[in-house]
């Protein structure tokens, strides 16, 4: 099928299957799935600037679906999501401007591709290490900190962050956080926004771990809140990238049809798994994404 805006010929069934897989992951892990969707589009021959913009557009629709399901399960901290809004928007615009700069230099594929690989490998390694440590401690009978309904091997780090006295301090009851600096929340949102604007997708692969390990949000609430935040960052990212000519909305619509089906399965599965196991299951996914980008960059051929 010809996608006239990006000037590419891509099999729509491939896009629907890609969207389906991303939808399952998005519903289960609370991430937009751009660590698979982005590399998947790039491997299909879509130029990287269109990958970034189109992926942002596709996850808007998908995240609305998944967020609603998490919302009715009480997994969305709306106050946290709305506070993160300003940081997310600012960061997304910074990221989008980065893409425009690289387009002018004609280096967008290589630079974004390499950056993507580094980020994906780092996230995979870190989550593998943390999840393995946490499961090991759980087996030895370690209990979670008081008031938290989740295990984490590095929960002391988020506790120290919460004790940082940088007013104004806010309370996040839905996440069980008695107090945390507003600036920490905005900084996490800003960094997530930069990744969203620069690498595409909702940057849930940065935001979800940040919510858990830095802010100290329980994993199930981090999943739902991250999805809510993705709606905001991806909507803004879609607008700014579309104005810059980086969005092929038809590709996004086709991918989303598959994602809408996959998200239902993904969300239903979260009720059967605990926090550390969800995080451990997440580990291979960024590696698959990194492999797809390496394939696209090294061979220059396309998966069709």
């Amino acid at each position: 099928m010809d996608f006239l805006i990006s000037g590419q010929h891509v099999n729509p069934i491939y896009l629907m299957i890609l969207g389906f897989v991303v939808g399952v992951f998005g519903g289960f892990f609370g991430v937009g799935g751009s660590f698979i969707a982005g590399p998947g589009l790039f491997a299909a021959g879509v130029p990287m600037n269109f990958v970034v913009g189109t992926d942002l557009a596709h996850i808007v629709g998908k995240s609305i679906v998944a967020t609603r399901k998490h919302f009715i399960r009480g997994n969305v901290d709306m106050k946290l999501g709305l506070i993160m809004f300003s940081g997310t928007i600012a960061g997304t615009e910074v990221g989008a401007q980065g893409i425009e700069y690289l387009k002018k230099l004609g280096q967008v594929n290589m630079v974004v591709g390499i950056f993507f690989i580094i980020v994906l490998l780092s996230i995979s390694a870190f989550m593998a290490w943390e999840s393995w440590l946490t499961l090991k401690r759980k087996k030895k009978g370690a209990k979670p900190r008081k008031g938290r309904a989740d295990h984490s091997a590095i929960s002391n780090f988020s506790a120290r962050i919460q004790r940082l006295n940088l007013p104004p301090m806010i309370k996040l009851s839905a996440s069980g956080i008695k107090q945390i600096s507003l600036w920490v929340v905005i900084a996490v949102a800003f960094v997530g926004g930069v990744f969203a604007g620069f690498l595409g997708g909702g940057a849930g692969y940065i935001r979800m771990p940040s919510l858990v390990y830095i802010i100290g949000v329980p994993t199930h609430v981090a999943v739902g809140t991250d999805l809510f935040e993705i709606i905001i960052s991806a909507s803004y990212g879609t607008l700014t990238h579309a104005i810059k000519g980086n969005v092929d909305i038809l590709i996004a619509l086709v991918m989303h049809t598959g994602a809408a089906v996959g998200a239902q399965i993904g969300v239903t599965l979260t009720q059967y798994f605990g926090g550390p196991r969800i995080r451990m299951a997440f580990v291979p996914l960024p590696l698959i994404g990194a492999a797809l980008i390496v394939y696209g960059l090294v061979t220059g051929t396309q998966l069709k």
């Binding site: 557009a57 629709g61 879609t238 000519g245 619509l253």
Partner: peptide, 19 residues
């Protein structure tokens, strides 16, 4: 492009909600 941007966002949001 600005109109396209608005239509693109509206299409994906509408599709998401309708589905």
């Amino acid at each position: 492009k600005p109109l396209y941007a608005l239509v693109a966002l509206a299409l994906i949001v509408t599709q998401g909600v309708v589905l």
